[in-house]
C-alpha cells in the first residue's frame, strides 16, 4: 500500500566539517507509520567534503531521489522551501580584542570627522549665529546654547532611529538595523541558492 509522507525542508542548517547529513537533519516529516518514519529519517543524503567549503545546497529533488531509491512506493508530498542551505561551521576564529578596538576607533574617528565636515559644508555655524540673532536680538560668535544641545541630540536621534538604548530596547519591534541585517542575509541566501545549487541553472555548454 502506498503511504503518504509530508516533508518540509528546513531553510538553513549548520553542520560540522566532514559530517554526514541525514534526512532528519534537514527536514521535518509527518506520516502515519512511525516505523517508516524512523527508517526514512536515517537515510543519508550527503557527506560534507573539503572542497564544499562553507555552503552546500541540498535540493528537494535530491531528497526525493534518496527516498524513492530506498522506498519506491512511498508518496512524498513536499511543503515549503525547495532547498536547504547547509552551512559548514569550521572552528571559529576568535576575533582579537585589538582588531575589534581598531575597527571601533576607525568608526569613531571617521564619524567624528564626517560630522565636522558636514557642519562646515552646510555652513552650520553661520546659520546658528543668525538664528541666535533672530531669537535674542544680539550677536554671538559661538551660540553654545544651541550647539551643545544640538550635539547631544545628534546622538539621541541616531539611537532613537535604531531603537537601542545601548542594550536596552525601547519597544518590541525589530529595529531598522535588524530588519536590514535580516534582508541582507536573505539576499545572500537567495544568491547561494541560485549559484551553489547545480540544479538551479543550466547553461548551454554543460550538457
Amino acid at each position: 500500500m502506498e503511504q503518504t509522507v509530508f516533508l518540509k525542508l528546513r531553510h538553513r542548517i549548520q553542520v560540522y566539517p566532514n559530517a554526514t547529513v541525514f534526512i532528519r537533519d534537514i527536514a521535518q516529516m509527518v506520516t502515519v507509520d512511525d516505523a517508516l518514519m524512523c527508517r526514512l529519517k536515517d537515510i543519508p543524503l550527503y557527506t560534507v567534503q573539503k572542497r564544499d567549503r562553507n555552503i552546500v545546497i541540498i535540493d528537494v529533488m535530491h531528497v526525493m531521489k534518496a527516498i524513492v531509491r530506498h522506498f519506491p512506493n512511498v508518496d512524498v508530498q513536499t511543503v515549503g522551501p525547495s532547498q536547504t542551505i547547509v552551512e559548514v561551521v569550521y572552528e571559529k576564529k576568535r576575533l582579537s580584542f585589538l582588531y575589534f578596538a581598531l575597527v571601533w576607533l576607525l568608526l569613531f574617528v571617521g564619524s567624528a570627522l564626517a560630522v565636522m565636515n558636514f557642519h562646515e559644508d552646510v555652513s552650520m555655524q553661520q546659520v546658528q549665529q543668525r538664528l541666535y540673532r533672530i531669537i535674542t536680538g544680539e550677536k554671538e560668535a559661538k551660540p553654545l546654547w544651541f550647539q551643545i544641545p544640538y550635539s547631544l541630540g545628534l546622538g539621541i536621534g541616531m539611537i532613537l532611529f535604531f531603537n537601542h538604548f545601548f542594550r536596552k530596547r525601547i519597544n518590541e519591534e525589530p529595529s531598522p538595523l535588524e530588519v536590514e541585517m535580516f534582508q541582507y542575509q536573505q539576499s545572500l541566501d537567495q544568491y547561494v541558492i541560485m549559484h551553489e545549487n547545480k540544479e538551479a541553472m543550466r547553461r548551454i555548454e554543460d550538457d
Binding site: I135, T136, G137, W145, Y150, G153, G157, L160, F161
Partner: peptide, 24 residues
C-alpha cells in the same frame, strides 16, 4: 524676536535629534 537665549536649548536639541535621525 528678542527672546531669552534659553529658547535655543530645545531648538538645538530638536534639530540635533532630527539631524541624528537623518544620519542614522
Amino acid at each position: 524676536l528678542f527672546l531669552t537665549p534659553y529658547v535655543l536649548i530645545p531648538l538645538g536639541l530638536f534639530s540635533g535629534v532630527f539631524v541624528g535621525m537623518l544620519a542614522a
